[in-house]
Write a protein that binds this DNA or RNA. Structure first.
Lengths: 164, 164
DNA sequence: TTCGGGTAGTTGTGCTAGCAACTATATCAG
DNA sequence: CTGATATAGTTGCTAGCACAACTACCCGAA
């Protein structure tokens, strides 16, 4: 292996670059796996469904159009259709027609879905804090958040952010 | 929605926490998707296969035990078995018996695999730099790498790091 | 030597996600 | 109003992954 630290344009990644890049991949993989397992164990709720509940609960009228929801939870439309189907079958969501646009439909939070979210939220937030946020100082969090803001547009061009 | 910024132990996430956490999720999702599409378009190589090639090429003898490889590429053992199968069918890897341990087997880099990696590496590294690394100063990279180091053990307990 | 427990890897199975094709509706041009 | 194009959502199909069960083997103890 003929490797040596170059500046930053050609050749292999420097150790620093490697650390910053691979760290992201590893931390993400582990966090998501741990959080999903945690949520599933405590409330029988996959992380993907929790995400949907959070998004819908935060939307006006506690309902959201399918396409917005798909963007919000980083899923394809077909993937979302089926995810919402599963959740509707479990009573966490219901589907409602859209009055303004007959093509569209809403995913609406049911009381059961709301209750489930209320149960799960504190579990999940506690886990996020414990596994991730608690490791950082306030300054570091600020730094991180700023970095994400900066990189996001660089990646691709489809997104918006949503609240908790 | 009765939400207000709390300190950091209870209640909903502060905007700062939210930004740091969701940013990670979004940036990761977009980067991986973009990098995979890029690599696939340029060299017909999925990111998962590229990862395997990098790991194996960096290992002594250009071969690796299946279980180490599985850890290295963040995949389950069964997932890795099938991924290596596919790559072997494409001629990128070959499977070799392990002399010391008859249970084990090696995934060995073939000349074709090496060639493919050589083609793809610069494409991929350029993309990683363009989409991610280039957005940061050296100091920020140092900060990031340090943060990952710190969080990693907090998540779960299985990993080691590997070089490029 | 032989038995028991642990480890490496593969295979059966099921789930989740994406892509492409399709339907139905909206919207805009003329 | 009519036809062309775009958008929302669903469905058919397939790929990739994880879990659990299984086989084969290693290693330590008696």
């Amino acid at each position: 292996m003929a490797t040596a630290a170059r500046t930053a344009q050609d050749g292999p990644l420097t150790d620093l670059e490697l650390g910053a890049w691979r760290g992201l991949l590893r931390v993400h993989a582990r966090l998501v796996k741990a959080l999903d397992a945690n949520l599933e164990a405590a409330h029988g709720l996959p992380l993907s469904q929790y995400d949907v509940l959070v998004q819908v609960a935060g939307a006006p009228g506690e309902r959201m159009r399918m396409c917005e929801l798909a963007d919000g939870v980083l899923l394809s439309r077909s993937g979302l259709t089926r995810l919402v189907d599963r959740m509707a079958k479990d009573g966490l969501l219901s589907r409602c027609a859209c009055e303004d646009d007959a093509r569209g439909s809403f995913a609406c939070l049911t009381p059961a879905g709301k209750a489930r979210l209320d149960e799960a939220r504190s579990t999940h937030l506690a886990a996020v804090r414990e596994l991730f946020l608690s490791e950082f100082t306030e300054d570091e969090l600020t730094c991180l958040a700023g970095l994400w803001e900066r990189v996001l547009p660089s990646c691709a061009g489809l997104d918006v952010c949503a609240g908790d």
